[in-house]
Design a protein around this nucleic acid. Structure first.
Lengths: 129, 129
DNA sequence: TCTTGACTCTATTCTAAGTATAGACTTTAT
DNA sequence: ATAAAGTCTATACTTAGAATAGAGTCAAGA
């Protein structure tokens, strides 16, 4: 299949597919005589793997590591477990940060209502110190 | 004061201060004969306002809007309230996304332990479809 | 007075993960 | 034969800075 069909089947945009290839995440496909990329099922699977990882917010660098792991099927998968555990920690940290942020913003929102002028605005006032 | 002192007083790095100026967020300061930037209290306050906004993850574009508002002190502050409300919504959305992500990652982590080989790895298996 | 170190200047490059565009070429359908 | 749709490469843009090179400036000590 050509890149347009791969795009439809995978749900990745054509630009994104070419981007992953350029970055070395997705293997280089064969080319037709007219230099068009041609993909098979194996490459579709590679792309789906990448997309699945990205949907879990796993970075491209981490995906590279996972792909490297996949290519060594006899080794221990402890590093994969570790990567996911660390990723969960990062997500937890981010959730904490955002929750605290949300609290601050909500308090700020309560310090004003929309019927004041800018110079009386409780929000802008709080933002100034 | 020169940019080094402004940096220390505000907690923004020197590069960041110059960056904000270049982007039009921070007003251009006076210059000495040797072309060094010289800042006064008013500019320090501008920078603190920007920093405070950024710490709440308010985008530079939104900060630009807020600064524009500040310069029109007689107008209604309803747009400021709206901006903060929308920002709270964005933060809430992000928290929801991350919470769902966390759940998925934790389920995935449970599908494997570190004592398997790569080819048996429950995590990599789940990532492949 | 000279020199050394600290400070500042501009301009450029890099980051992540794509998105968007221009201009050229190829394929497909009518 | 022509037009539309698809594909190609290369480049620029996005956010919010961080990092660097190379040049110029300033203050203190010898």
């Amino acid at each position: 299949m050509k890149i347009g069909e791969l795009s439809k089947r995978s749900g990745c945009s054509i630009q994104t597919i070419r981007f992953y290839e350029r970055k070395g995440l997705l293997s280089k496909p064969e080319r037709t005589e007219a230099n068009y990329r041609t993909y098979d099922k194996a490459l579709l699977d590679e792309l789906i793997f990448i997309k699945q990882c990205r949907s879990l917010d796993i970075s491209m660098k981490e995906i590279e590591t996972l792909i490297h792991n996949k290519n060594n099927p006899e080794q221990s998968c402890s590093s994969v477990n570790k990567l996911i555990d660390e990723h969960i920690c990062q997500v937890n940290e981010k959730i904490k940060e955002l929750s605290s942020l949300k609290l601050t913003l909500e308090q700020m929102a309560q310090s004003c209502d929309a019927n004041k002028t800018i110079k009386e605005c409780g929000i802008l006032n709080e933002l100034s110190h």
